[in-house]
Amino acid sequence: MIKYLISNDVDMGGKRTKNTSRMTSKKGKTNFIFPVIIAIVAVSSIAFLAMSFTDDSSIDTSKQYGTVDTSLGSPILGSSDAPVTIIEFGDYQCPHCKKWFFDTKPIIVENLIDTGKVNLQFLDIAVLGKDSLSASAATYCAEDQEKYWEYHSTLYSNQLGVDNGWANTTNLKKYASNLGLDMDLFANCLDSGNYLQRVLKNTDVSRNVGFSGVTAFMIIGPNNQQDLIIGAQPYEVFKEVIEPML
C-alpha cells in the first residue's frame, strides 16, 4: 500500500427614508448607496458565476474512462479492478487541494482504496502559476523512477502558496533528492521539459470537464455512471456518493 511521506524540506519561510427634506440632492444619495450596492452585487455575481460555471452538460460522453481521458494522468492508486474510480483534478499550488489531501484523502485511502472498493487517479490542472506546470511535470519525472505517489505527497507536504519559490526547479530537485531518486535522471527529465506537453494536455482535459475551480473530483461507477464533487469536501460526501455505486 502507498504510504504518505510527510516531510518539510524547505525553510521558507435602502431604501430611501421619507426624510428627504434633509437630503442635499438625489445625486448625493446615489453617490453613497451605489458603492455599497456595487460591492454586494460584485460578490454575489462572483458566487453566481461559481455556480453557473459548474455545468455538467459540457461533458462529452464519448470519451474513455467515464467521460474523461485519463490516459496521460497519474498511475492508478489502489486496485485497478476496483469498481469505482475517483478522478482527482488538482494543482500542486492549490491550498484547497492541500486541505483535501490532508483532511479527506487519508480517510478515503483507509476506508475505500485499501479495501479495494475504489481506486484513484490524479489529473493535473496546472493553472494557478508558472510553478504549477513544472511541479506537475516533476511528478512524471518521479514516475519514471516509480515514485510518483511519493513525490505527489512530498509536493503537497511542502506547499507554501503560489509561485513563491517552494516549487521552483531547485526545490523540485531537492525533494527528488530527499526521496532518493536518481538525480541525474530526474534533473535531465525536469530540465529538458519532457513532460510539459503531457501536463498541458491533462490541463486541457480537466478544463473541458466543465467545472469552475481547481479542486474537483469525478466519481465513476461500475456502469460508467458519474458524479461531480466540487471543492475540498469531507469524507462523508464521498461516502454518500460512492456507496450507492458499489
Binding site: 462572483i46 461559481a50 499550488q93 491550498p95 494557478l128 502558496g161 503560489v162 475551480g213 471543492g231
Partner: peptide
C-alpha cells in the same frame, strides 16, 4: 477569491494572466 476556489476558472478566463497574478497574490 482564491484561484483554486469555485471562481478560479471564471477569474482566469475573464482577466487572463493579470487575473492569475492577482489570484496568486490573494492566495498567498
Amino acid at each position: 477569491a482564491c484561484g483554486c476556489g469555485p471562481v478560479g476558472f471564471a477569474v482566469f478566463s475573464t482577466f487572463g494572466s493579470l487575473g492569475a497574478t492577482a489570484s496568486a497574490f490573494l492566495t498567498n
